[in-house]
Computed example of a mutant assay.
Amino acid sequence: MSSPASEARLEPFRLRGANFNLLVLRLLDPRVEVVVPALADQFRRAPGFLRNAPIVLGLDDLDPAAAPDFNHLIAQLRGVQIAPIGTTGGGPELRAAAQAAGLPPLRAAGEQPLAAAPAPAPAPMPEPVPEPPPPSGWQPTMVVDQAVRAGQRIWAQGCDLIVRGTVNPGAEVIADGNVHVYGALRGRAIAGGSENLSARIFALNFEPELVSIAGYYAVRDGLGDAPLGRAVQVCLIGESMRFDKLG
């Protein structure tokens, strides 16, 4: 007879719920021949950015009457090593067109399903006792005590990130809050991963391949007169990045 332990090992699979951080590619133009070459151009200026990354296509900025050719878009994105896995936002027509091409609509954790009927209003309650506000979910700062190597990606979810060493070329550091690099920033730094427009990037030696805050980014060729090689703070002013010397 087989033991319970051996039977447990024979189960074919297990399903578990999980949350993942995914980048959203907001489509501002429905024309595939415009979007994909623009992405390829960014790849040439920032090698490795989004390469082989799973992404979600944001549909909120598209005209519902002018849906992209999603089958063609998927093929072209895969051709430049981007893996679209679903969509977010957009009207029913856009979502249906994307789903027909194999891109299901995704929703954030805790968000109601798109087809769900609104929940009935609760019965009136007599003078409920106020409850304390729920915790914000912000976590303690993540601290990395060593250099971040080429090809390595570190994501500080729901918190700030402090790197006490160098972020080497080809490395990527991401934080939902601020990014602090107490060494040379030579790779990619992404702050405000949760669309936090007030997030900032600090580096003692500023020589990045790419910096991004809340989806706005600049590659090395687009840093203008930023003080390279100096201690720098990066912040957003409106939709523009500002590079200020520290000290």
Results as ranks from 00 to 15, higher is better:
P140R: 04
R107W: 08
P30Y: 06
A67D: 07
F13K: 03
A184G: 13
V56Q: 10
A100N: 08
V24G: 04
G170F: 00
G193P: 03
R44D: 14
L197Q: 11
A199I: 00
E239D: 15
P64M: 07
P208G: 03
P128F: 12
A116K: 03
A100D: 10
S194E: 08
A38D: 12
L59F: 11
L57Y: 12
P169Y: 07
R26E: 15
L59A: 10
L228G: 03
L246K: 06
I213W: 02
D145S: 13
L114G: 05
G238R: 07
L59W: 10
Y217Q: 07
E7L: 14
G89P: 08
P84Q: 05
E207C: 01
Q99W: 05
R44M: 14
R9H: 06
P130H: 07
T166S: 06
V219S: 09
G79N: 12
P126F: 14
L106Y: 05
V24L: 04
A116N: 05
A218F: 01
V144Q: 13
G170T: 00
A156R: 02
T166P: 00
V181K: 00
G222S: 12
I213M: 10
V211E: 04
N178L: 00
P47M: 12
P132S: 07
T166E: 11
L50N: 06
P104G: 06
I201K: 10
G177T: 03
F13Y: 14
I174C: 02
Q233P: 01
D60V: 15
V232Q: 08
E131I: 10
R186I: 01
C235M: 08
G79P: 05
L23D: 13
Y182E: 15
P64T: 14
G193R: 01
R31F: 11
D29V: 04
L57F: 12
V32L: 05
L28Q: 11
E195A: 13
V34C: 02
G91D: 11
Q233N: 11
R31C: 07
G48Y: 12
G238M: 08
L77M: 11
V143L: 14
P227K: 01
N196A: 08
L228V: 13
L22Y: 15
A97D: 09
Q76I: 00
F243K: 05
